[in-house]
Design a protein around this nucleic acid. Structure first.
Lengths: 247, 247
DNA sequence: TGAAGCTCCTATGTATACATAGAATTCAGG
DNA sequence: CCTGAATTCTATGTATACATAGGAGCTTCA
């Protein structure tokens, strides 16, 4: 599991307003944190393909940290389920089979339907009213090229954040975060399908409206429908381009 | 999260049937694995109380490993949510507030109700028929003192294992394992309540019968009822003895 | 006597050297 | 030419020494 109580890394980049010095506030994070983020991003982006081997010395050389922080990074990735230890021969990026996609969506249904129900009960209406207005602009956004697409994905993130805040349950939020981590690896495969994105935006809108209205049942069922369509789309994309799996 | 793909530690204690040597097969596990298990057990048993500070040097001295494997152990405990890093002053065992108990049960409901539904669909009937017979003997077991009590808790574990096997979803099973980890810390508080244990056994029996019958709806609802009663019992125990929280 | 600043100390973060287990390769024997 | 075992090599597991940041306590000044 990922932690429920985990705090910000160790931070330190608290910029005490007004202490604007010449040195850039970058890279105040620890070496292990840097290694973790880089490896994680590369795995999620597919730069490190599923099945790829991870050797401690090799990776620590490449990233520019010693083996100690790199081992810590790999330990976290193993906890995330993104990396697995091969018996005697190093580590490898975990595979993502079609079966595991089904399994991931099964867990996702359980968590998000429950989360939607809870959110419909505990939500701050103002937040979701704002989100509703934003999502209503989604169809136009999707006509505005790369920038609009980027904004659209930000909207999805905003929705996830609002859902987490409304749920207000660290255990559930952590479980959702884990699912989203693995989901990020899958999304790459089915990306850039305008028709699907428009439909997804409409589905999100319905979920939001249900949450605003406090309609727990509709929130859960609309979520179920959304996830069904999402999975169908992913599977269709995989069917059309099985090679993408190893991309 | 805990890993979905994590394998047995690194193992090695595969006893190739017939190679029964004189040397005991103990302690072939790595130092970090030993440290992890010991700390984890101590946290779950309450030996290391919530809020207790964990200092690397102190703990590594006590357990008898160097700081390196101990750091790995703590990293895993953080991923489990059992330990949190205090900004500048070491680590501490996470607290278990009444709020967090509610939150944990909320996640547990989402996962176990879903798992029960799935199990009722995919189960191997033989396994659950066997379990049903076992659980029918529970009332008698609970009259047989410590040994019977021990056997009863084994039955619960058997049920959990059977549920995991029937679900057959590594993501969901991992999420359930995480919940059970935190649950183990709570169970201590409400232990040794014979009346509750008898009732719980009856509730389990109903869930099992629903799974055997392939009745998904009943399996889910019976699980919901069971979890409601379980939570009520825990909260009542806490109410009666708030000190137990820090015990 | 109180508060502010400084110093020291402690505990984590990192690097590196060494130990060890397992796999691949190579060599020898049939 | 094939099979077997021994050896070597590689990659992780562990220990330790050093760097560094943050806090507690003390000292000093007002």
């Amino acid at each position: 599991m990922a932690s429920v109580y985990t705090e910000t890394p160790m931070s330190g980049n608290t910029t005490p307003l007004g202490t604007r010095t010449a040195v850039p506030p970058v890279a105040v994070v620890s070496a292990s944190e840097r290694a973790y983020r880089q490896l994680r991003d590369e795995i999620l982006d597919g730069v490190l393909a599923p099945g790829a081997g991870l050797l401690e010395v090799e990776q620590s050389d490449r990233i520019g940290v010693s083996r100690t922080p790199l081992r810590a990074a790999i330990a976290r990735l193993i906890a995330d389920g993104l990396v697995a230890g091969r018996a005697g021969r190093g580590f490898m990026v975990t595979e993502m089979s079609v079966d595991s996609i089904h399994e991931l969506y099964e867990l996702r249904r359980a968590l998000e339907e429950h989360a939607a129900r809870i959110a419909a009960t505990r939500r701050d209406p103002h937040v979701f009213l704002e989100l509703r207005d934003q999502f209503r602009t989604a169809p136009e956004l999707l006509l505005q090229g790369e920038a609009g697409l980027h904004r659209y994905y930000e909207l999805i993130d905003d929705f996830d954040d609002a859902l987490d805040a409304a749920v207000g349950n660290p255990f559930l939020v952590t479980a959702l975060a884990n699912v989203r981590t693995h989901l990020a690896r899958i999304r790459r495969l089915a990306r850039h399908n305008p028709a699907r994105l428009r439909a997804a935006a409409a589905e999100h809108l319905l979920i939001i409206e249900a949450i605003v209205a406090g309609d727990t049942s509709l929130a859960a069922h609309a979520t179920h429908v959304h996830l069904h369509q999402s999975l169908s789309n992913v599977l269709a994309a995989l069917e059309a381009n099985p090679a993408a799996q190893a991309d």
